[in-house]
Design a protein around this nucleic acid. Structure first.
Lengths: 213, 213
DNA sequence: CTGGATCCTGCCCGATACTG
DNA sequence: CAGTATCGGGCAGGATCCAG
């Protein structure tokens, strides 16, 4: 059951043997948002072949990273405590990758789970703490998210609820988060369209979620 | 030039497209210790096929992660600033992998670079700060390392020099670092053999380098 | 000798079809 | 809905060969 190994002894090598296979860490990323069904994972990882998804789920399960839980008629996959400890790894990799991210290409999908983890990556708790609690409804491509910031805690869900600011963002939202584009300019240039609420709140959003390029 | 992509837009996805291929992150790990020649990389990554090493070096270079530097007759590879920013990722993955590490198997090699990064992973600066500066010479398998701790800084090299404690560690050293085995017991059971210096210093080593399982 | 390039084999990945 | 079966292509693995 041990994945293809590297013939070396060490922490990094061991880590890669467990989650280094193609698609594995993306499955973990989506499960960090919450338990998911097989079909939900397949939907979020649009281009994963079903046999690969099935194989990865078995491997991750054998490695003690995820658990297969029958949940009244349906089966969901969720992270074990050891699997949840991958969060710092995923966040660090996401932060690093974000820095060289360009604008989304035509064929690239923006999924809610990926966006959620990116928001967690960019979240600055020590900044948020200084600001009043705020709820945002954000649409990125097809992903609609409810983002609630309260003190130093962040909660991103797909549900609906009352918000202080609702906006839709086109490609280029990245530049708002990286600081290349100020909030006012983002609205002027059409990168962000404010749907409801005071547009000044977009500045609060930009300072709460920030990741330099 | 873009590696096989995932068809998704996001930080984690982007990161995996850059360093998610097999062997890539191990090359980065070794280069985090210092610049290396082609042959040194091949030696440290014993089982990497030469064509794969050559291919990865080209890809990492194209991605702006490493640089190929002619250095008076010889060529060395070194990380770019962007590549060096992978250190938190490698350390986080190493810390995570370390937790499920067993004892080294017969066919597993312990390389100096892998060991160096594991020591960096386990290093606790805030503990070291409270202790007097100490130099250790440690032999793990075939890897001989000079470990210097001074205040909150750690320096691991392959050179030689005056040390306060010299020891050789067998398989099972992991249990000393994880705290499963106390320093006294480690010496008693032969897991660690003190070659020079006061054996009490092994306790200092164990509290300086610690990573819970 | 170092730093690769080349060739070939085999296995993993990817795409699609199919089933309980 | 949650996977399994099948098959082709491409990357990985190992050995060998070549250039400076």
């Amino acid at each position: 059951m041990a994945a293809r190994d590297y013939g070396q002894y060490g922490g990094v090598t061991r880590g890669l043997e467990l989650v280094g296979e193609r698609w594995a860490l993306l499955i973990v990323r989506d499960l960090l948002v919450g338990p998911r069904r097989y079909g939900e994972l397949a939907g979020g990882l649009a281009r994963i072949p079903s046999n690969i998804l099935a194989a990865r789920l078995k491997e991750l399960q054998a490695a003690g990273i995820i658990r297969r839980v029958p949940h009244s008629r349906v089966i969901v996959y969720e992270l074990t405590p050891y699997g949840r400890e991958l969060e710092p790894v995923v966040l660090a990799l996401g932060a690093w990758g974000f820095k060289s991210l360009g604008d989304p290409r035509e064929e690239q999908v923006i999924t809610p789970d990926a966006m959620t983890m990116d928001l967690r990556t960019a979240f600055r708790p020590q900044v948020a703490e200084q600001l009043p609690a705020t709820a945002y409804a954000a649409r990125f491509g097809h992903a609609e998210l409810l983002i609630r910031v309260d003190g130093s805690t962040l909660d991103v869900t797909r549900g609906d609820g009352p918000v202080d600011l609702a906006f839709a963002a086109g490609p280029g939202i990245r530049r708002l988060i990286s600081g290349e584009l100020g909030p006012e300019r983002a609205i002027e240039t059409g990168v962000v369209e404010v749907l409801r609420g005071r547009r000044a709140l977009l500045g609060r959003f930009a300072s709460t979620f920030h990741l330099a390029a």
